[in-house]
Design a binder for these strands. Structure first.
Length: 781
RNA sequence: GGGCGCUUAGUUCAGUGGUAGAACGUUCGCUUCACACGCGAAAGGCCGCAAGUUCAAUCCUUGCAGCGCCCACCA
């Protein structure tokens, strides 16, 4: 027998090819994750276990990883998703299914640009002075650097995704598919370039989709202004929160049913300060109860006014520019002023003329940029839009038919609410970092040239060669909305793995991403991109607060992994958390599961010490003589303990029967819960069983029966292993050992999806393993 | 204004049409030879309020109250 000292670790053990009882006894009393995790992960990865076994005839299982934004570090939110996905993946892999977890990274267009812009600001450089190509290159380098940091963080969490297939959202193969989709939408007349009122962020100098605009309650002032009626000394009083926009007014609107104003409809008013003559129109969109019931109409700077203008064919005068300052059209005395300055000056000037009737404080929701919180300036700009109606209907039908199922039903309601209220989707962004829209403009006024990416040599309409490409890029969500089919097509796995099984992601991106994937996936491939949608909640701290850098309550997942191990973090993220609900995590909770990992470690040490050396050595010899691997010979026999009525074996003591019965029950339960996406219940069951049934009860009960086991050099039986359950079990102690072994190894398997590292570390020390690694073990039945 | 949720032990949360569950925390005892990151024991709850359906409601229905989130063109 070889002797070891406690410094020696896994690799030494493996070099020697054997593990002895003495080795186990020398192991540290506490599980030290740092000593094992990265080594184990490396072995898994090198072993190629993350790639799907394409030879398997079983039904494939596929999860597409929501590609993390490659512009920073992973946060705990990623930890939740990665853990849940990894649990599913490891479970299905152990069931022998060809299992693909496709990792990716997202260039995250606007988001990354915002991050990079901040970085430039700190360096004192001006974003807008850097040439486009240079900027693109810089952001690209930045993103790729972050991408590799992130990949290593995913490894630290234990993500068993197939790195050999990893794909980036700006991969040439992906871009090609995205452009084809745009072309198809264009051919189907689902995309158009339109001059419509859009959301403009003055800071970031780009438009945003409606979803990217947040609404904040703000205190404002409702200013009542007199507009004089032409050829009369009468006035109509309008109420507005944005007096400065009156410079761009082209009408006053009232509700057609409003008796107060009935006789004024069609009359002309003189716009104060400007002198422009504008009509009073009747429009049902005007609320009679609000303000004075008369609205000034500024088509260029207000969405509602824009619509009124469309209906009444009103002129549109832009008085605010993309720089957030008043334009020359606002008049000499206002041009160049910032909006806020102009507001003050306009009110002053009106007051000087006695045209302010009253000013009242007024709470109202103001649209702000979701990134910089700056007030959104509605402007009219030509943008690319996707028509939503037919795609939304398509998505609704897909969900109604059950082609896509939501694990948490209530999200289906929320999705429908979204789908029913969608307006056309502005997919163009005036940013650098993204996929450029494949449209070319001819120098002459020919129709636009839309391609699937190829650069046209000449204008198909006039033959002209003076063409210039659209500078706008796609909204990131336009490309990521195609991710499941695009990614699988790019890696060549589409045939086998599409549609995928589960889309696991945070509920906060239901409308941004999930909804669009259903629409675009179904539209392009005629199949829904996934069968199930599992949405997890937001992470909160013990005081139920959202985590944010400014609050200083952020938990860095890698810090936790370093301190307590990935297993502890993973378990803390699933324990006591049901689908769709917010997740409360605290240092206490993580420590509790660090303790559990340690419990697994120590219980395993105890079992291994008590198996006796015959377990470690003799059986290997036996199986070699029967030309069976050491591993197979051992465990297949043990597996029969629970399966073929061995519980009734006369040599089993009552406590043996109880624990084996419970093991069998727990195995069924955990399996059932995993199939139903009830990860927390699965985790709690196995936790409860392992700690309180196996450790607290069974291990204590059998201690007496094991006395002397360690020193024992019991001879093994050479009887045929196929005729007897416990071939080698010649006395009570040996029966106990067999039961211990069986319960431990099955527990390790059941625990593995949740806590892959401790379980694998222990498995590596197990004698008579069926497989080389636990990660590829067979799920118990 | 519209929509979606939540309310169960001190805390964070599970759960079920039929005697209330876990984790953490708390209290008391334990240097028991796997583990003090541990073991044993214990305390702790009209399952938000009211009505209804039912033989039976914490669970289903309705109303109410409190809390949270999302959406939104009352300028």
């Amino acid at each position: 027998m070889l002797s070891y000292n406690r410094r020696e670790n896994l690799s030494t053990m493996e070099k020697e090819g054997k593990i002895s009882v003495h080795f186990i006894m020398e192991l540290s009393k506490n599980f030290n994750p740092g000593e094992y995790e990265q080594k184990i992960y490396k072995k898994w990865e090198e072993g190629g276990f993350f790639a799907p076994d394409l030879k398997s005839k079983k039904k494939p299982f596929c999860v597409i990883m929501p590609p993390p934004n490659a512009n920073g570090s992973l946060h705990v939110g990623h930890g939740v998703g990665i853990t849940l996905e990894d649990i599913m993946i490891r479970y299905h892999r152990m069931k022998g299914e060809p299992t693909l977890w496709l990792p990716g990274a997202d260039h995250a267009g606007f988001e990354t640009q915002v991050v990079y812009q901040k970085k430039l600001e700190k360096e004192g450089r001006n974003w807008f002075h850097i040439p486009r190509e240079e900027l693109y290159k810089e952001i690209s380098d930045f993103t790729l650097a972050n991408k590799s940091v992130m990949e290593n963080q995913l490894r630290r969490l234990g993500a068993s995704c197939d790195w050999s297939r990893e794909i980036f959202t700006l991969d040439e193969r992906i871009i090609k598919i995205v452009l084809q989709t745009f072309k198809k939408l264009s051919d189907d007349s689902l995309v158009y370039r339109g001059e419509r009122i859009i959301n403009w962020c003055v800071k970031h100098q780009t438009t945003l989709s409606d979803l990217e605009v947040k609404h904040e309650e703000k205190d404002g002032t409702l200013t009542h202004i007199k507009y004089q009626i032409k050829n009369s000394d009468k006035y109509i009083i309008v109420a507005t929160t944005r007096p400065e926009t009156m410079l761009g007014d082209t009408a006053v609107a009232v509700n057609p049913k409003d008796k107060r104003y009935k006789n004024l409809i069609g009359k002309i008013v003189i716009l104060p300060l400007v002198g422009r003559e504008i009509p009073i129109v009747a429009d049902a969109a005007v609320e009679m109860e609000f303000g004075t019931g008369a609205v000034k109409v500024t088509p260029s700077h207000d969405p509602l006014d824009f619509e009124i203008a469309q209906r009444h064919n009103l002129e549109k005068i832009q008085v605010i520019g993309q720089d957030g300052k008043m334009t020359v059209s606002a008049g000499k005395q206002y041009a160049g002023l910032k909006v806020e300055e102009a507001r003050v000056k306009v009110v002053e000037d009106l007051r000087a003329r006695g045209l302010i009737v009253k000013e009242e404080t007024h709470k109202h929701a103001v649209g702000v940029c979701y990134k910089c919180n700056r007030v959104i300036e509605p402007l009219i700009l030509p943008q690319w839009f996707i028509k939503m109606k037919s795609l939304a209907d398509l998505a609704m039908k897909t969900v109604e038919k059950g082609e896509v199922k939501f694990v948490t039903k209530r999200f289906e309601k929320i999705l429908f609410h979204w789908l029913k209220n969608l307006r056309d989707w502005n997919i163009s962004r005036q940013i650098v970092w993204g996929i450029r829209i494949p449209v070319w403009y001819c120098a002459k006024t020919c129709p636009l040239i839309v391609t699937a990416g190829e650069t046209p040599k000449k204008c198909p309409h006039c033959g002209g060669t003076e063409l210039r490409q659209e500078t706008d890029v796609f909204d990131t969500w336009f490309s990521s909305g195609q991710w499941p089919f695009a990614a699988l097509q790019a890696t060549g796995d589409f045939q086998k793995f599409y549609p995928t099984n589960v889309m696991e992601t945070g509920w906060d991106i239901l409308p941004f991403w999930v909804m669009r994937m259903i629409m675009l996936g179904k539209y392009i491939t005629s199949k829904a991109p996934f069968e199930y949608v599992y949405l997890h909640g937001l992470i909160r701290d013990q005081d139920r607060q959202k985590m944010s850098k400014s609050k200083g309550n952020v938990i860095d997942p890698l810090g936790v992994v370093d301190l307590h191990g990935a297993d502890a973090l993973r378990m803390a993220l699933v324990f006591g958390v049901s689908a769709g609900n917010d997740i409360v995590i605290s240092e206490d909770k993580i420590r509790a599961h660090r303790n559990f990992a340690n419990k697994i470690w120590n219980a395993s040490r105890f079992v291994l010490m008590n198996l006796g050396d015959n377990f470690f050595e003799s059986h290997c010899e036996e199986s070699q003589t029967t030309k069976q691997s050491c591993a197979t010979a051992g465990s297949s026999r043990f597996l029969s303990v629970g399966r073929h009525g061995a519980r009734d074996d006369a040599r089993l003591q009552p406590e043996d029967k109880v624990i084996l019965k419970k093991l069998s029950e727990i195995t069924k339960k955990v399996t059932k819960y995993l199939d139903k996406f009830e990860f927390h219940l699965a985790a709690e069951e196995i936790y409860q069983f392992f700690w309180h049934e196996f450790c607290d009860k069974y291990l204590e009960e059998v201690k007496g029966r094991l006395t002397g086991a360690i020193a024992s050099e019991a001879k093994q039986s050479r009887r045929d292993r196929h005729t007897t359950t416990f071939v080698w079990a010649r006395d009570d102690r040996q029966v106990t050992q067999a039961v211990l072994y069986k319960v431990l190894i099955d527990s390790l398997k059941l625990l593995h999806p949740f806590m892959p590292f401790v379980t694998e570390a222990v498995y590596q020390m197990m004698p008579k393993k069926e497989k080389e690694f636990l990660i590829i073990e067979n799920w118990p039945v």
